[in-house]
Write a protein that binds this DNA or RNA. Structure first.
Length: 487
RNA sequence: GGGCCGUUAGCUCAGCUGGUAGAGCAGGGGACUCUUAAUCCCAAGGUCGAAGGUUCGAGCCCUUCACGGCCCA
Protein backbone atom coordinates (compact mmCIF):
# COMPACT_ATOMS: atom_id res chain seq x y z
CA UNK A 1 0.00 0.00 0.00
CA UNK A 2 1.06 3.56 -0.39
CA UNK A 3 2.48 5.10 2.75
CA UNK A 4 -0.51 7.41 2.78
CA UNK A 5 -0.61 8.56 6.37
CA UNK A 6 2.66 7.21 7.62
CA UNK A 7 4.77 10.30 7.39
CA UNK A 8 2.59 13.22 8.38
CA UNK A 9 4.15 16.55 7.71
CA UNK A 10 3.74 18.84 10.62
CA UNK A 11 0.80 21.16 10.49
CA UNK A 12 0.29 24.42 12.26
CA UNK A 13 2.31 24.83 15.43
CA UNK A 14 -0.96 25.35 17.29
CA UNK A 15 -1.80 21.69 16.61
CA UNK A 16 1.53 20.35 17.74
CA UNK A 17 1.24 22.35 20.92
CA UNK A 18 -2.41 21.50 21.46
CA UNK A 19 -3.26 20.08 24.82
CA UNK A 20 -5.98 17.49 24.35
CA UNK A 21 -6.72 17.53 28.05
CA UNK A 22 -7.92 21.12 27.74
CA UNK A 23 -10.46 20.31 25.02
CA UNK A 24 -14.14 19.93 25.94
CA UNK A 25 -15.31 16.43 26.82
CA UNK A 26 -18.79 17.03 25.49
CA UNK A 27 -20.84 19.38 23.37
CA UNK A 28 -24.40 18.93 24.59
CA UNK A 29 -27.81 20.16 23.49
CA UNK A 30 -26.82 19.83 19.85
CA UNK A 31 -29.14 20.67 17.02
CA UNK A 32 -28.88 18.76 13.78
CA UNK A 33 -27.80 20.63 10.70
CA UNK A 34 -30.58 18.92 8.74
CA UNK A 35 -33.13 20.34 11.22
CA UNK A 36 -31.63 23.81 10.93
CA UNK A 37 -31.85 23.68 7.15
CA UNK A 38 -35.48 22.59 7.23
CA UNK A 39 -36.54 25.12 9.85
CA UNK A 40 -34.79 28.13 8.29
CA UNK A 41 -35.44 27.26 4.67
CA UNK A 42 -37.73 30.23 4.09
CA UNK A 43 -35.29 32.96 5.16
CA UNK A 44 -34.86 35.73 2.58
CA UNK A 45 -31.39 36.97 1.58
CA UNK A 46 -29.85 39.19 4.30
CA UNK A 47 -32.55 38.12 6.74
CA UNK A 48 -31.67 36.63 10.13
CA UNK A 49 -33.55 33.86 11.92
CA UNK A 50 -35.02 34.19 15.39
CA UNK A 51 -33.68 31.31 17.40
CA UNK A 52 -30.19 30.30 18.40
CA UNK A 53 -28.82 27.09 16.92
CA UNK A 54 -26.14 24.94 18.41
CA UNK A 55 -24.49 22.63 15.92
CA UNK A 56 -21.27 20.67 15.63
CA UNK A 57 -19.43 18.66 13.06
CA UNK A 58 -16.42 18.52 10.80
CA UNK A 59 -15.02 21.46 8.84
CA UNK A 60 -14.94 20.54 5.16
CA UNK A 61 -14.30 23.88 3.49
CA UNK A 62 -13.06 27.35 4.24
CA UNK A 63 -13.13 30.50 2.16
CA UNK A 64 -11.58 33.65 3.53
CA UNK A 65 -12.33 37.18 2.43
CA UNK A 66 -10.47 39.43 4.81
CA UNK A 67 -12.96 40.37 7.51
CA UNK A 68 -15.42 37.64 6.51
CA UNK A 69 -14.74 33.93 6.60
CA UNK A 70 -17.02 31.20 5.27
CA UNK A 71 -16.72 27.67 6.60
CA UNK A 72 -18.55 24.53 5.49
CA UNK A 73 -19.61 22.41 8.45
CA UNK A 74 -21.04 18.93 8.06
CA UNK A 75 -22.71 16.54 10.47
CA UNK A 76 -24.41 13.24 9.73
CA UNK A 77 -27.62 15.03 8.73
CA UNK A 78 -26.14 17.51 6.28
CA UNK A 79 -23.95 20.50 5.59
CA UNK A 80 -24.32 24.20 6.25
CA UNK A 81 -22.15 27.24 5.70
CA UNK A 82 -20.87 29.16 8.72
CA UNK A 83 -20.43 32.90 8.46
CA UNK A 84 -17.85 34.55 10.71
CA UNK A 85 -17.47 38.32 10.62
CA UNK A 86 -14.62 40.35 12.11
CA UNK A 87 -16.90 43.32 12.74
CA UNK A 88 -19.40 41.33 14.84
CA UNK A 89 -16.97 39.06 16.67
CA UNK A 90 -13.99 41.22 17.48
CA UNK A 91 -10.47 40.51 16.40
CA UNK A 92 -9.50 37.90 18.99
CA UNK A 93 -12.51 35.63 18.47
CA UNK A 94 -12.41 36.12 14.73
CA UNK A 95 -8.76 35.05 14.47
CA UNK A 96 -9.54 31.83 16.32
CA UNK A 97 -12.29 30.97 13.86
CA UNK A 98 -10.20 32.00 10.89
CA UNK A 99 -7.38 29.68 11.88
CA UNK A 100 -9.50 26.54 11.66
CA UNK A 101 -8.22 23.80 9.39
CA UNK A 102 -10.13 21.56 7.07
CA UNK A 103 -10.96 18.38 8.92
CA UNK A 104 -11.16 19.96 12.39
CA UNK A 105 -14.14 19.19 14.60
CA UNK A 106 -15.89 22.21 16.07
CA UNK A 107 -19.07 23.29 17.83
CA UNK A 108 -20.82 26.51 16.93
CA UNK A 109 -23.67 28.58 18.29
CA UNK A 110 -25.43 31.35 16.41
CA UNK A 111 -28.46 32.40 14.45
CA UNK A 112 -29.39 31.49 10.92
CA UNK A 113 -28.78 34.01 8.19
CA UNK A 114 -29.13 33.95 4.45
CA UNK A 115 -26.27 35.69 2.64
CA UNK A 116 -26.66 38.23 -0.14
CA UNK A 117 -25.74 35.46 -2.52
CA UNK A 118 -28.57 33.34 -1.14
CA UNK A 119 -26.65 30.73 0.83
CA UNK A 120 -28.29 29.63 4.08
CA UNK A 121 -25.67 30.12 6.78
CA UNK A 122 -25.16 30.16 10.52
CA UNK A 123 -23.81 33.42 11.81
CA UNK A 124 -21.16 32.45 14.36
CA UNK A 125 -21.68 33.89 17.84
CA UNK A 126 -19.84 31.27 19.91
CA UNK A 127 -17.12 28.97 18.69
CA UNK A 128 -15.82 25.84 20.45
CA UNK A 129 -12.85 23.91 19.17
CA UNK A 130 -13.52 20.22 19.88
CA UNK A 131 -10.78 18.16 18.20
CA UNK A 132 -8.10 18.77 15.61
CA UNK A 133 -7.53 16.90 12.38
CA UNK A 134 -3.78 16.46 12.50
CA UNK A 135 -3.28 14.75 9.17
CA UNK A 136 -3.77 16.28 5.74
CA UNK A 137 -7.29 15.76 4.47
CA UNK A 138 -8.08 13.90 1.23
CA UNK A 139 -8.53 16.04 -1.86
CA UNK A 140 -11.71 18.06 -1.45
CA UNK A 141 -12.74 18.08 -5.09
CA UNK A 142 -11.81 14.65 -6.31
CA UNK A 143 -12.50 12.85 -3.06
CA UNK A 144 -10.66 9.70 -2.18
CA UNK A 145 -10.09 7.74 -5.38
CA UNK A 146 -7.87 4.92 -4.17
CA UNK A 147 -10.19 1.96 -3.62
CA UNK A 148 -7.71 0.29 -1.33
CA UNK A 149 -7.51 3.28 0.99
CA UNK A 150 -11.28 3.70 0.92
CA UNK A 151 -11.65 0.16 2.25
CA UNK A 152 -8.72 0.01 4.64
CA UNK A 153 -9.44 3.45 6.09
CA UNK A 154 -13.20 3.49 5.66
CA UNK A 155 -13.45 6.48 7.99
CA UNK A 156 -11.78 8.59 5.31
CA UNK A 157 -14.30 7.35 2.76
CA UNK A 158 -17.18 8.17 5.12
CA UNK A 159 -15.75 11.60 5.99
CA UNK A 160 -15.40 12.68 2.41
CA UNK A 161 -18.24 10.92 0.62
CA UNK A 162 -21.81 11.58 1.73
CA UNK A 163 -23.02 8.87 -0.66
CA UNK A 164 -20.92 6.28 1.13
CA UNK A 165 -22.45 7.33 4.44
CA UNK A 166 -25.93 7.16 2.99
CA UNK A 167 -25.26 3.71 1.60
CA UNK A 168 -24.40 2.30 5.01
CA UNK A 169 -27.32 4.08 6.62
CA UNK A 170 -29.54 2.51 3.95
CA UNK A 171 -28.13 -0.89 4.84
CA UNK A 172 -29.03 -0.30 8.50
CA UNK A 173 -32.57 0.73 7.54
CA UNK A 174 -32.88 -2.42 5.43
CA UNK A 175 -31.88 -4.62 8.36
CA UNK A 176 -34.24 -2.76 10.68
CA UNK A 177 -37.06 -3.34 8.21
CA UNK A 178 -36.34 -7.07 8.08
CA UNK A 179 -36.36 -7.31 11.88
CA UNK A 180 -39.59 -5.32 12.00
CA UNK A 181 -41.27 -7.60 9.45
CA UNK A 182 -40.31 -10.76 11.32
CA UNK A 183 -41.04 -9.36 14.77
CA UNK A 184 -44.50 -8.26 13.64
CA UNK A 185 -45.11 -11.81 12.38
CA UNK A 186 -44.31 -13.13 15.89
CA UNK A 187 -40.89 -14.53 15.10
CA UNK A 188 -38.42 -14.79 17.99
CA UNK A 189 -34.91 -13.48 17.38
CA UNK A 190 -32.28 -15.82 18.79
CA UNK A 191 -28.52 -16.15 18.97
CA UNK A 192 -26.83 -19.49 18.34
CA UNK A 193 -23.15 -20.43 18.57
CA UNK A 194 -20.61 -18.93 16.21
CA UNK A 195 -18.02 -21.40 17.53
CA UNK A 196 -19.27 -24.86 16.73
CA UNK A 197 -17.83 -28.31 17.42
CA UNK A 198 -19.20 -29.42 14.05
CA UNK A 199 -20.17 -27.14 11.19
CA UNK A 200 -23.14 -27.65 8.91
CA UNK A 201 -26.15 -26.14 7.20
CA UNK A 202 -24.40 -25.17 3.96
CA UNK A 203 -22.05 -26.59 1.39
CA UNK A 204 -18.92 -24.67 2.30
CA UNK A 205 -15.43 -24.99 3.73
CA UNK A 206 -15.17 -23.68 7.29
CA UNK A 207 -12.63 -21.66 9.21
CA UNK A 208 -11.06 -23.67 12.00
CA UNK A 209 -10.00 -22.22 15.32
CA UNK A 210 -8.82 -23.59 18.63
CA UNK A 211 -10.12 -23.38 22.18
CA UNK A 212 -7.11 -23.42 24.49
CA UNK A 213 -8.76 -24.46 27.74
CA UNK A 214 -10.84 -27.21 26.18
CA UNK A 215 -7.86 -28.05 23.99
CA UNK A 216 -10.03 -28.74 20.99
CA UNK A 217 -10.56 -27.34 17.53
CA UNK A 218 -13.80 -25.51 16.82
CA UNK A 219 -15.34 -24.33 13.57
CA UNK A 220 -16.70 -20.88 12.81
CA UNK A 221 -20.23 -21.45 11.62
CA UNK A 222 -20.96 -21.57 7.89
CA UNK A 223 -24.69 -21.35 8.63
CA UNK A 224 -27.09 -21.18 11.56
CA UNK A 225 -29.52 -23.72 10.13
CA UNK A 226 -28.97 -26.80 12.27
CA UNK A 227 -29.11 -24.87 15.55
CA UNK A 228 -32.23 -22.95 14.54
CA UNK A 229 -34.08 -26.15 13.68
CA UNK A 230 -33.09 -27.61 17.05
CA UNK A 231 -34.94 -24.60 18.52
CA UNK A 232 -38.01 -25.41 16.43
CA UNK A 233 -37.84 -28.96 17.82
CA UNK A 234 -37.78 -27.28 21.23
CA UNK A 235 -41.06 -25.50 20.51
CA UNK A 236 -39.99 -21.95 19.64
CA UNK A 237 -41.94 -22.50 16.40
CA UNK A 238 -40.94 -19.28 14.61
CA UNK A 239 -37.32 -18.26 15.01
CA UNK A 240 -34.82 -16.13 13.18
CA UNK A 241 -31.18 -15.18 13.49
CA UNK A 242 -29.42 -12.31 11.76
CA UNK A 243 -25.69 -12.52 12.00
CA UNK A 244 -22.33 -13.34 10.54
CA UNK A 245 -21.45 -16.60 8.83
CA UNK A 246 -17.91 -17.51 7.80
CA UNK A 247 -16.86 -19.43 4.72
CA UNK A 248 -13.27 -20.21 3.95
CA UNK A 249 -13.48 -19.51 0.25
CA UNK A 250 -12.43 -17.02 -2.38
CA UNK A 251 -13.09 -13.31 -2.33
CA UNK A 252 -15.04 -11.82 -5.24
CA UNK A 253 -17.46 -9.06 -6.10
CA UNK A 254 -20.18 -11.13 -4.42
CA UNK A 255 -18.20 -13.05 -1.77
CA UNK A 256 -16.65 -11.86 1.46
CA UNK A 257 -15.27 -14.53 3.83
CA UNK A 258 -17.45 -13.19 6.63
CA UNK A 259 -20.88 -12.06 5.60
CA UNK A 260 -24.27 -11.39 7.10
CA UNK A 261 -27.05 -13.91 6.78
CA UNK A 262 -30.67 -13.97 7.82
CA UNK A 263 -32.16 -17.37 8.49
CA UNK A 264 -35.73 -17.89 9.63
CA UNK A 265 -37.73 -21.06 10.33
CA UNK A 266 -41.44 -21.39 10.60
CA UNK A 267 -43.08 -24.49 12.07
CA UNK A 268 -46.17 -25.92 10.36
CA UNK A 269 -45.19 -24.14 7.14
CA UNK A 270 -43.60 -25.45 3.96
CA UNK A 271 -41.49 -24.31 1.05
CA UNK A 272 -44.42 -22.45 -0.54
CA UNK A 273 -45.13 -20.47 2.61
CA UNK A 274 -41.56 -19.33 3.06
CA UNK A 275 -41.23 -18.34 -0.60
CA UNK A 276 -44.11 -15.95 -0.05
CA UNK A 277 -42.59 -14.60 3.12
CA UNK A 278 -39.25 -14.09 1.38
CA UNK A 279 -40.92 -11.97 -1.29
CA UNK A 280 -42.67 -9.94 1.37
CA UNK A 281 -39.47 -9.32 3.34
CA UNK A 282 -37.66 -8.08 0.25
CA UNK A 283 -40.52 -5.84 -0.81
CA UNK A 284 -40.85 -4.29 2.66
CA UNK A 285 -37.09 -3.73 2.83
CA UNK A 286 -37.10 -2.07 -0.59
CA UNK A 287 -39.93 0.21 0.47
CA UNK A 288 -38.11 1.11 3.68
CA UNK A 289 -34.83 1.89 1.91
CA UNK A 290 -35.86 3.17 -1.53
CA UNK A 291 -39.51 4.08 -1.08
CA UNK A 292 -40.24 1.94 -4.12
CA UNK A 293 -39.93 -1.65 -5.28
CA UNK A 294 -38.17 -0.67 -8.47
CA UNK A 295 -34.37 -0.71 -8.34
CA UNK A 296 -31.68 -0.34 -10.97
CA UNK A 297 -29.02 -3.02 -11.23
CA UNK A 298 -26.43 -3.27 -13.96
CA UNK A 299 -28.23 -0.55 -15.89
CA UNK A 300 -31.54 -2.41 -15.81
CA UNK A 301 -34.59 -1.32 -13.89
CA UNK A 302 -36.06 -4.31 -12.12
CA UNK A 303 -39.30 -4.81 -10.23
CA UNK A 304 -38.92 -6.52 -6.86
CA UNK A 305 -42.62 -6.85 -6.09
CA UNK A 306 -43.88 -10.44 -6.25
CA UNK A 307 -44.96 -12.90 -7.24
CA UNK A 308 -41.56 -13.78 -8.66
CA UNK A 309 -41.52 -16.12 -11.65
CA UNK A 310 -40.64 -19.74 -10.95
CA UNK A 311 -38.74 -22.15 -13.11
CA UNK A 312 -37.50 -25.62 -12.31
CA UNK A 313 -33.77 -26.16 -12.09
CA UNK A 314 -33.88 -28.74 -14.89
CA UNK A 315 -35.79 -26.42 -17.22
CA UNK A 316 -33.57 -23.45 -16.39
CA UNK A 317 -30.41 -25.35 -17.27
CA UNK A 318 -32.03 -26.86 -20.36
CA UNK A 319 -33.04 -23.41 -21.58
CA UNK A 320 -29.42 -22.25 -21.55
CA UNK A 321 -27.59 -25.43 -22.54
CA UNK A 322 -30.08 -27.75 -24.24
CA UNK A 323 -29.38 -30.36 -21.56
CA UNK A 324 -31.79 -31.19 -18.77
CA UNK A 325 -29.69 -32.97 -16.14
CA UNK A 326 -32.81 -34.10 -14.27
CA UNK A 327 -33.96 -36.30 -17.16
CA UNK A 328 -30.66 -38.11 -17.72
CA UNK A 329 -30.59 -40.31 -14.66
CA UNK A 330 -27.56 -39.47 -12.54
CA UNK A 331 -25.08 -39.86 -15.36
CA UNK A 332 -22.30 -37.27 -15.03
CA UNK A 333 -20.91 -38.02 -18.49
CA UNK A 334 -23.21 -35.85 -20.67
CA UNK A 335 -22.82 -32.91 -18.27
CA UNK A 336 -19.07 -33.18 -18.17
CA UNK A 337 -18.88 -33.60 -21.95
CA UNK A 338 -21.00 -30.50 -22.46
CA UNK A 339 -18.90 -28.34 -20.14
CA UNK A 340 -15.68 -29.59 -21.69
CA UNK A 341 -17.03 -28.95 -25.19
CA UNK A 342 -17.53 -25.34 -24.10
CA UNK A 343 -13.90 -25.15 -22.98
CA UNK A 344 -14.76 -25.12 -19.28
CA UNK A 345 -12.50 -26.70 -16.68
CA UNK A 346 -14.35 -29.51 -14.89
CA UNK A 347 -11.37 -30.85 -12.98
CA UNK A 348 -12.85 -29.76 -9.67
CA UNK A 349 -16.26 -31.26 -10.36
CA UNK A 350 -15.98 -34.71 -8.86
CA UNK A 351 -19.63 -35.68 -8.75
CA UNK A 352 -22.87 -35.41 -10.72
CA UNK A 353 -24.17 -32.96 -8.15
CA UNK A 354 -21.14 -30.68 -8.52
CA UNK A 355 -21.55 -30.71 -12.29
CA UNK A 356 -25.22 -29.67 -11.95
CA UNK A 357 -24.19 -26.91 -9.58
CA UNK A 358 -21.52 -25.79 -12.05
CA UNK A 359 -24.06 -25.65 -14.89
CA UNK A 360 -26.47 -23.68 -12.75
CA UNK A 361 -23.94 -21.14 -11.53
CA UNK A 362 -22.25 -20.72 -14.91
CA UNK A 363 -25.15 -20.67 -17.36
CA UNK A 364 -28.23 -19.73 -15.34
CA UNK A 365 -27.30 -17.57 -12.35
CA UNK A 366 -25.68 -14.66 -14.24
CA UNK A 367 -28.73 -14.34 -16.50
CA UNK A 368 -31.28 -13.99 -13.70
CA UNK A 369 -31.40 -10.22 -13.21
CA UNK A 370 -35.04 -9.81 -12.20
CA UNK A 371 -35.99 -11.79 -9.09
CA UNK A 372 -36.65 -15.41 -10.00
CA UNK A 373 -37.21 -18.59 -8.02
CA UNK A 374 -35.43 -21.70 -9.23
CA UNK A 375 -37.24 -24.71 -7.77
CA UNK A 376 -37.14 -28.52 -7.70
CA UNK A 377 -33.51 -29.18 -6.77
CA UNK A 378 -31.90 -32.61 -6.89
CA UNK A 379 -31.67 -34.31 -3.51
CA UNK A 380 -27.91 -34.71 -3.88
CA UNK A 381 -27.51 -30.90 -3.71
CA UNK A 382 -29.97 -30.56 -0.85
CA UNK A 383 -29.11 -32.80 2.09
CA UNK A 384 -31.43 -30.97 4.51
CA UNK A 385 -34.53 -30.62 2.32
CA UNK A 386 -37.67 -32.66 2.32
CA UNK A 387 -38.44 -34.85 -0.70
CA UNK A 388 -41.07 -33.76 -3.15
CA UNK A 389 -43.92 -36.28 -3.25
CA UNK A 390 -44.24 -38.05 -6.58
CA UNK A 391 -40.89 -36.96 -8.01
CA UNK A 392 -37.94 -39.20 -7.34
CA UNK A 393 -34.69 -37.49 -6.46
CA UNK A 394 -36.26 -34.03 -6.21
CA UNK A 395 -36.76 -31.94 -3.07
CA UNK A 396 -39.09 -29.09 -2.09
CA UNK A 397 -36.47 -26.38 -2.33
CA UNK A 398 -35.98 -23.00 -3.97
CA UNK A 399 -33.23 -20.53 -4.52
CA UNK A 400 -34.05 -16.90 -5.28
CA UNK A 401 -31.80 -15.13 -7.77
CA UNK A 402 -31.64 -11.43 -8.49
CA UNK A 403 -29.06 -9.18 -10.09
CA UNK A 404 -27.28 -12.28 -11.37
CA UNK A 405 -26.68 -13.57 -7.83
CA UNK A 406 -28.22 -16.07 -5.47
CA UNK A 407 -29.84 -14.05 -2.72
CA UNK A 408 -31.87 -16.67 -0.93
CA UNK A 409 -32.20 -20.41 -0.38
CA UNK A 410 -35.08 -22.17 1.34
CA UNK A 411 -37.00 -25.36 1.59
CA UNK A 412 -39.39 -27.62 3.37
CA UNK A 413 -37.18 -28.97 6.15
CA UNK A 414 -36.34 -32.64 6.20
CA UNK A 415 -37.77 -34.01 9.46
CA UNK A 416 -37.34 -37.76 8.89
CA UNK A 417 -34.35 -38.70 11.08
CA UNK A 418 -33.62 -41.91 9.17
CA UNK A 419 -33.58 -40.11 5.83
CA UNK A 420 -31.49 -37.34 7.39
CA UNK A 421 -28.94 -39.84 8.64
CA UNK A 422 -28.84 -41.44 5.18
CA UNK A 423 -28.33 -38.01 3.54
CA UNK A 424 -25.47 -37.24 5.90
CA UNK A 425 -23.91 -40.60 5.01
CA UNK A 426 -24.31 -39.79 1.33
CA UNK A 427 -22.62 -36.42 1.91
CA UNK A 428 -19.80 -38.15 3.71
CA UNK A 429 -19.42 -40.40 0.69
CA UNK A 430 -19.29 -37.36 -1.60
CA UNK A 431 -16.69 -35.89 0.71
CA UNK A 432 -14.59 -39.02 0.34
CA UNK A 433 -15.08 -38.71 -3.44
CA UNK A 434 -13.38 -35.33 -3.30
CA UNK A 435 -16.18 -32.82 -2.63
CA UNK A 436 -14.58 -30.62 0.02
CA UNK A 437 -17.81 -28.70 0.51
CA UNK A 438 -19.78 -31.81 1.50
CA UNK A 439 -21.59 -31.85 4.85
CA UNK A 440 -20.12 -33.68 7.81
CA UNK A 441 -22.40 -36.10 9.67
CA UNK A 442 -24.11 -34.45 12.66
CA UNK A 443 -25.47 -37.23 14.89
CA UNK A 444 -26.61 -34.80 17.55
CA UNK A 445 -28.80 -33.04 15.00
CA UNK A 446 -30.31 -36.39 13.96
CA UNK A 447 -31.04 -37.05 17.62
CA UNK A 448 -32.97 -33.75 17.79
CA UNK A 449 -35.02 -34.90 14.78
CA UNK A 450 -35.77 -38.18 16.58
CA UNK A 451 -37.71 -36.14 19.15
CA UNK A 452 -39.87 -34.72 16.35
CA UNK A 453 -39.45 -31.67 14.16
CA UNK A 454 -42.86 -30.39 13.05
CA UNK A 455 -43.31 -29.79 9.34
CA UNK A 456 -41.23 -26.65 8.90
CA UNK A 457 -40.19 -24.21 6.22
CA UNK A 458 -36.97 -22.25 6.44
CA UNK A 459 -34.93 -19.74 4.49
CA UNK A 460 -31.49 -18.19 4.35
CA UNK A 461 -31.26 -14.69 2.87
CA UNK A 462 -27.95 -13.01 2.04
CA UNK A 463 -28.07 -9.60 3.68
CA UNK A 464 -25.01 -8.14 1.93
CA UNK A 465 -26.31 -9.11 -1.48
CA UNK A 466 -29.73 -7.68 -0.75
CA UNK A 467 -27.99 -4.48 0.36
CA UNK A 468 -26.14 -4.45 -2.98
CA UNK A 469 -29.46 -4.66 -4.82
CA UNK A 470 -31.17 -1.97 -2.77
CA UNK A 471 -28.24 0.46 -2.97
CA UNK A 472 -27.36 -0.20 -6.61
CA UNK A 473 -23.86 -1.53 -5.91
CA UNK A 474 -22.16 -4.17 -8.01
CA UNK A 475 -19.56 -5.25 -5.48
CA UNK A 476 -20.06 -6.54 -1.96
CA UNK A 477 -17.09 -4.46 -0.77
CA UNK A 478 -19.17 -1.32 -1.15
CA UNK A 479 -21.84 -2.54 1.27
CA UNK A 480 -19.48 -4.08 3.86
CA UNK A 481 -17.84 -1.41 6.03
CA UNK A 482 -14.53 -3.21 6.41
CA UNK A 483 -14.23 -5.81 3.66
CA UNK A 484 -11.61 -8.54 3.81
CA UNK A 485 -8.20 -7.37 2.58
CA UNK A 486 -4.74 -8.85 2.53
CA UNK A 487 -2.88 -7.51 5.53
C1' G B 1 -5.08 -20.33 -8.89
C1' G B 2 -4.54 -17.79 -14.18
C1' G B 3 -4.48 -13.31 -17.51
C1' C B 4 -4.32 -8.04 -18.08
C1' C B 5 -3.64 -3.26 -15.75
C1' G B 6 -1.96 -0.14 -11.79
C1' U B 7 1.42 1.75 -7.50
C1' U B 8 5.20 9.18 -8.60
C1' A B 9 4.31 14.99 -2.74
C1' G B 10 -0.86 14.19 2.55
C1' C B 11 -4.85 13.93 -1.72
C1' U B 12 -5.95 14.10 -7.28
C1' C B 13 -2.83 13.46 -11.27
C1' A B 14 1.25 14.78 -15.32
C1' G B 15 6.15 13.03 -16.45
C1' C B 16 8.07 12.28 -24.43
C1' U B 17 12.97 8.20 -27.46
C1' G B 18 16.57 6.35 -20.67
C1' G B 19 19.67 12.31 -19.16
C1' U B 20 18.79 12.76 -12.02
C1' A B 21 10.95 15.32 -10.45
C1' G B 22 6.10 18.73 -12.09
C1' A B 23 0.98 20.95 -11.45
C1' G B 24 -3.64 21.70 -8.73
C1' C B 25 -5.65 21.08 -3.96
C1' A B 26 -4.41 20.37 1.26
C1' G B 27 -0.70 22.15 4.99
C1' G B 28 2.83 27.00 6.41
C1' G B 29 3.55 32.69 5.83
C1' G B 30 1.11 37.08 3.80
C1' A B 31 -3.03 40.21 1.16
C1' C B 32 -8.28 40.62 0.76
C1' U B 33 -15.30 42.60 4.56
C1' C B 34 -20.56 38.05 0.77
C1' U B 35 -17.45 33.51 -0.60
C1' U B 36 -19.40 28.66 -2.94
C1' A B 37 -13.49 24.08 -5.98
C1' A B 38 -13.04 32.02 -3.66
C1' U B 39 -8.83 34.77 -5.61
C1' C B 40 -3.68 36.75 -5.51
C1' C B 41 1.71 36.69 -3.70
C1' C B 42 5.78 33.88 -1.09
C1' A B 43 8.16 29.70 0.87
C1' A B 44 8.22 24.54 1.87
C1' G B 45 7.05 19.64 0.62
C1' G B 46 9.75 13.17 -3.01
C1' U B 47 13.46 6.18 -0.51
C1' C B 48 9.05 7.61 -7.93
C1' G B 49 5.52 0.32 -3.92
C1' A B 50 10.20 -3.11 -2.49
C1' A B 51 14.63 -5.74 -3.95
C1' G B 52 17.87 -7.12 -7.70
C1' G B 53 19.63 -6.44 -12.90
C1' U B 54 20.98 -3.89 -17.77
C1' U B 55 23.32 0.98 -18.69
C1' C B 56 28.21 6.12 -18.43
C1' G B 57 23.22 7.26 -16.60
C1' A B 58 16.67 4.18 -14.74
C1' G B 59 10.33 7.12 -12.53
C1' C B 60 10.87 5.10 -17.66
C1' C B 61 13.95 -1.11 -19.97
C1' C B 62 14.40 -6.51 -17.67
C1' U B 63 13.52 -10.11 -13.37
C1' U B 64 11.37 -11.27 -8.74
C1' C B 65 8.24 -9.89 -4.76
C1' A B 66 4.22 -7.02 -2.12
C1' C B 67 -0.43 -4.63 -2.34
C1' G B 68 -4.64 -3.17 -5.23
C1' G B 69 -8.19 -3.09 -9.56
C1' C B 70 -10.72 -5.65 -13.63
C1' C B 71 -11.70 -10.25 -16.03
C1' C B 72 -11.47 -15.66 -15.91
C1' A B 73 -11.52 -20.21 -12.73
Amino acid sequence: MSSSTRSPRSRAPRLNAMDFASLPHRFGDRDQIGALRTAEELLEPEQSGERAWRISGRVLGRRGQGGVTFIDLEDVTGRVQLLAELERMGEEAYEVVRSVSIGDLVGVQGTAFRTRRGELSLQVAEWTFLAPCRLPFPDRHHGLQDVEVRHRQRYLDLMTDAEARERFIARARMIASIRRSLDEADFVEVETPVLQPLYGGAAARPFITHHNTLDRDLYLRVATELYLKRLVVGGLEKVYELGKDFRNEGVSHKHNPEFTMLEFYEAYADCEDVMGRTEQLVVAAAQAVCGTTKVTIKGQEIELAGPWPRITLGAAIEEKTGINPMTLGRDPKPLEDYLKSQGIDTSRDKTWAQLVDHLLSHYVEPTLISPTFIIDYPVELSPLSRRKPGEDGVVERFEAFCGGMEISNGFSELNDPDDQRARFEEQAEMGRAGDDEAHPVDEDYVTALEYGLPPTGGVGLGIDRLAMLLTGQETIREVVLFPAMRT
